[in-house]
């Protein structure tokens, strides 16, 4: 499923909304999660999962093509951990 398919689905479920509103809703939600993460905040959505930012230390890396050593500076990476309910749903049909 892509973002535009998700928007179309939300628009179909809510015939009283304009397609443009459905688009704005979906965009706002994920933009807002992104900006919370960029402020270093954690986004906890019960039943779905948690988005947070993890720190990666600086390390000595290597250019895989040339074998040349390069230093990789410390950075932050966005991280998502699925919630228990979502994990259970993924494994419900066993």
């Amino acid at each position: 499923m892509t973002k535009s398919e998700l928007i179309a689905r939300i628009a179909a479920l809510n015939p009283h909304l304009y397609q443009a509103d459905a688009e704005k809703i979906v965009t706002t939600i994920f933009d807002e999660i992104g900006s919370a993460l960029s402020e270093g905040l954690r986004v906890e959505l019960r039943g779905f999962g948690v988005f947070c930012v993890r720190n990666r230390n600086a390390r000595a890396g290597r250019n895989p093509r040339t074998g040349e050593q390069v230093s990789v500076s410390a950075k932050k990476v966005p991280f998502f951990k699925a919630g228990k309910k979502l994990k259970d749903r993924l494994n419900a049909n066993d």
Binding site: E32, I33, G40, V43, E44, L45
Partner: peptide, 11 residues
């Protein structure tokens, strides 16, 4: 890191 939570309500 311990940080403030953003929840459903804020989204």
């Amino acid at each position: 890191e311990v940080s403030r939570n953003v929840t459903r309500a804020e989204l």
